[in-house]
Simulated assay, not measured.
Amino acid sequence: MKKRNIMTSLSVAALSLSLLSGVAASADSMSNMHDMSSMKMEKKTTKKSTKKSSMKMTKKSAKKMTKKSSKKMNMKHSMMGGMMMDGLEMNMNSKLPKGLKKATHAKFHVGQKVTLKAKHMEGMYNAKATVAGVYKTDLYEIDFMPTNGGKMVKNHKWVVASELKAKGALKAGKKVTVLADHMYDMKGAKGKIVKVHKGPAYVVTFKDTKTKMVMKNHKWLTQQELKAIK
């Protein structure tokens, strides 16, 4: 009887030990799975962080390259003897605007010979010119930051309404994005309106009094900045 009780006790102990071993193994397995899951999560997080960091570096590098490229372009244009205005190279391939309403009752007409009385740039004052276009639109004097990262351009004359992008009415103090390309590094620049001038707006072709270079379809001049040649 005693022998049977001892055998029974041993069997129960063995079964308990087996169950405890199974629980421990299961716990170890769960722990290993948790560790593996944590490692995967860490790898994913590290990968995402590295990717974001890489993208930021790429954007910064691209921005620096764009600025350097723009400055090189300006230097190249200057070396070629291009005309300058407000410290920026003029676009010598300017074309007449499309979609603007033509002014029919302006003081000066297309084809008329005039003398320029504006001082927007060197070689402009008293230059002989021909009116290339007259449009029914107001003109805006603006301050803007060139896209090449150069100095702020102050009191630039002129741009018209279709060359400015802004929310709400165009008036003095309004922040704008410049759409004009009269000069290199002007298009896309951020700025603000300084002054609004009543139209019409004139486009002229003139010969620079300093360099003798011909500026075709120069934008823009006000009626008060032109004088008829008698």
Rank of each mutant, 00 (worst) to 15 (best):
T147M: 02
Q223P: 02
A24V: 07
V114S: 03
K157T: 13
K47H: 14
K192Q: 07
L139K: 07
Y184N: 06
Y184C: 10
L10M: 13
V12R: 10
G81Q: 02
E122Y: 05
A129E: 01
M41S: 10
A228E: 11
K167E: 12
K192S: 11
N5H: 12
S69A: 10
A14L: 13
L10C: 05
A132C: 09
K76R: 10
M145V: 05
I142H: 03
K165L: 07
V131L: 02
S9P: 09
T115W: 13
M1Q: 10
K3Q: 13
V176C: 00
K56A: 04
V204M: 05
L20W: 07
E42H: 13
K216R: 04
S54W: 14
L19M: 15
L19D: 11
K219M: 09
H105P: 03
Q112G: 07
K154C: 11
K190Q: 15
W158F: 14
T205R: 01
M121R: 08
M57T: 15
A180H: 01
V160E: 03
S49A: 15
A27R: 08
H105F: 12
G111T: 01
M36R: 15
A161P: 00
N126G: 05
F108A: 00
A189P: 05
I142Q: 02
V159H: 01
K174E: 06
T130V: 12
K60T: 07
A14Y: 09
T222C: 00
A228R: 05
D143T: 04
M73P: 01
A62T: 03
G123K: 02
K136A: 10
N148E: 03
A228D: 06
T46K: 12
A25H: 11
H156M: 10
A166Q: 00
K175H: 14
K71Q: 10
T115N: 13
K227I: 01
E163P: 00
W158H: 15
F144W: 02
G81A: 00
M121H: 00
Q112V: 00
V196H: 13
T8I: 08
S16V: 06
M213E: 13
K171S: 10
A169Q: 12
F144P: 06
M41F: 15
A166L: 00
T222E: 04
K119C: 08
M30T: 09
A103D: 03
H120W: 12
S16M: 14
K68M: 04
K117E: 09
T222F: 00
M57K: 10
G199N: 05
M83E: 13
M215G: 07
L226S: 06
V160H: 05
S49I: 06
K107C: 04
Q112W: 05
T205I: 03
K63G: 01
L226C: 12
E163Y: 03
S37A: 15
M36L: 12
K227M: 07
A103V: 04
K192L: 08
M90K: 09
P146A: 02
D86Q: 07
L179E: 11
K165M: 12
T50V: 11
A25R: 06
K101I: 11
A172S: 14
K210G: 12
N5K: 11
M39L: 11
L15A: 15
M79Q: 14
S9T: 11
S54F: 03
D181F: 11
N217P: 06
L170Y: 06
N217H: 07
D185L: 05
L17F: 02
H197E: 07
M1P: 07
G173P: 14
L179D: 04
S49R: 11
Y184A: 09
M85R: 13
G149V: 00
F108T: 01
T205C: 09
M36N: 11
